[in-house]
């Protein structure tokens, strides 16, 4: 009974959206670099979740802050406890739209430049942003890549003066997601 209702809901959902293709990933990679000449600071998160709607261009990302891995244990601890306060703000997210989605042909293999516009939420602070990226279509697989710069103070992240010359004022973020079709 419960199962048939679920199937019915899925059917409704499909018909309502006109069988629009959606793509998802739960193992996207998001990394950032915020080092200076004095210190190289690199962290990678390999379990970012993302959903992409091919029809509307709607795109969303979410990561768990505690999932960022650093080479040094102390850096990871400072990042979580002092800067990102990850127990209080466990996630960071982005919700937005690919503004030129109509120029991407999901049936035709190739790499398409895209523009993404939306709201980033880090450390409990929301901010509008825009970046360039690309979508690579190959068969049923879709890969999204983007690279952009985030100003750390925009998100009310306080860096103590004692380490200020080791940590950059901005972080360069690299996104790489391999999507599969959402069934």
């Amino acid at each position: 009974m419960k199962k048939s209702f679920f199937v019915f809901c899925c059917f409704l959902l499909c018909t309502a959206t006109g069988f629009a293709q959606k793509y998802f990933t739960k193992n996207g990679t998001i990394s950032f670099e915020a080092g200076t000449a004095l210190e190289d600071i690199v962290a990678t998160n390999k379990t970012a979740a993302s959903v992409l709607d091919a029809a509307t261009g709607q795109i969303e990302f979410a990561v768990l802050i505690k999932g960022f891995e650093f080479r040094r244990a102390l850096m990871q601890e400072h990042f979580n406890e002092n800067y990102m306060e990850s127990s209080k703000y466990p996630r960071a997210s982005f919700k937005g739209k690919i503004t030129n989605i109509q120029s991407v042909s999901f049936q035709k293999p190739g790499t398409y430049p895209v523009t993404v516009k939306g709201t980033m939420e880090i450390h409990g602070v929301k901010k509008e942003m825009q970046t360039a990226g690309s979508l690579t279509i190959s068969g049923t697989a879709v890969q999204a890549t983007a690279r952009f710069v985030v100003t750390i103070s925009d998100y009310k992240i306080a860096i103590p003066r004692i380490v200020a010359d080791k940590i950059s004022k901005t972080a360069t973020v690299v996104v790489r997601c391999n999507y599969s079709i959402l069934k």
């Binding site: 739960k26 379990t47 979740a49 979410a62 768990l64 505690k66 999932g67 891995e69 466990p90």
Partner: peptide, 12 residues
């Protein structure tokens, strides 16, 4: 364990 997003996530 790093928490729950859509799934519960385990790293390393």
């Amino acid at each position: 364990c790093t928490g729950k997003l859509m799934d519960v996530v385990l790293n390393k």
